[in-house]
């Protein structure tokens, strides 16, 4: 059994359908609201963290089963320690000011929030800057450490099973901590 690995128009149509589902998910979960993101960063609202951590629990288990059965393959981009760390810090600084990430900005604009337009313009301006800095980046953050080890998939070895168990265990424990800290009820709108 192998993944479908669609191509051409079939891939485009399916990506639009998956995108529509993500759009519905963002609105029905209330994640498109800037206030929700800002409150999460101020530790006033735990909804985003709860969804993130619990989806990791469900998703990792589903992916592990799918990978062992052969329906899914490991599909992650190459990662470098310093690039990931610096990227996380820079994006963390950015989100403090704009309160949106690429998927929530698009959904926010779709709900009529025109302030998301400026954030989207900021996103688009970053690409020429990255191209301009490409030479500098390839000599610094991308060479300071080796690319991180990527497995071919979950092969049933102790290492791969330990990775799944640790990810699911830590995410589940953090979900309970956040549930305890923020309570089960979430602010609506």
């Amino acid at each position: 059994m192998n993944p479908l690995a669609l191509d051409g128009n079939a891939k485009l149509i399916c990506s639009i359908v998956i995108g529509v589902m993500v759009g519905v998910w963002l609105i029905k979960s209330g994640l498109e609201q800037r206030r929700r993101f800002v409150d999460m960063l101020l530790l006033k609202d735990g909804l985003i963290l709860k969804i993130f951590l619990l989806s990791i629990v469900f998703g990792t288990i589903l992916f592990y089963i799918g990978n062992r059965v052969g329906y899914e393959r490991l599909n992650v981009r190459p990662a470098y320690f310093w690039a990931s760390l610096a990227g996380g810090v820079i994006a963390g600084v950015g989100v403090t000011f704009c309160g949106r990430v690429p998927m929530t900005a698009v959904a926010s604009l779709a709900t009529g929030k025109l302030s998301a337009l400026w954030v989207l313009m900021g996103f688009l301006l970053a690409f020429p800057a990255v191209r301009w800095m490409a030479d500098f980046l390839s000599k610094t953050v991308y060479t300071w450490s080796q690319p991180m080890y990527a497995r071919n998939g979950f092969d049933g070895s102790r290492l791969s099973e330990a990775a799944v168990l640790w990810t699911v265990g830590v995410a589940l424990a953090l979900t309970f901590i956040i549930l305890f800290a923020f309570g089960g009820k979430d602010k609506q709108n």
Partner: peptide, 16 residues
């Protein structure tokens, strides 16, 4: 919006 969005996407591009 412009500054924050720029930094978010810059960070995401670094992260890959």
């Amino acid at each position: 919006g412009l500054g924050g969005g720029f930094l978010v996407m810059l960070g995401l591009q670094l992260g890959g």
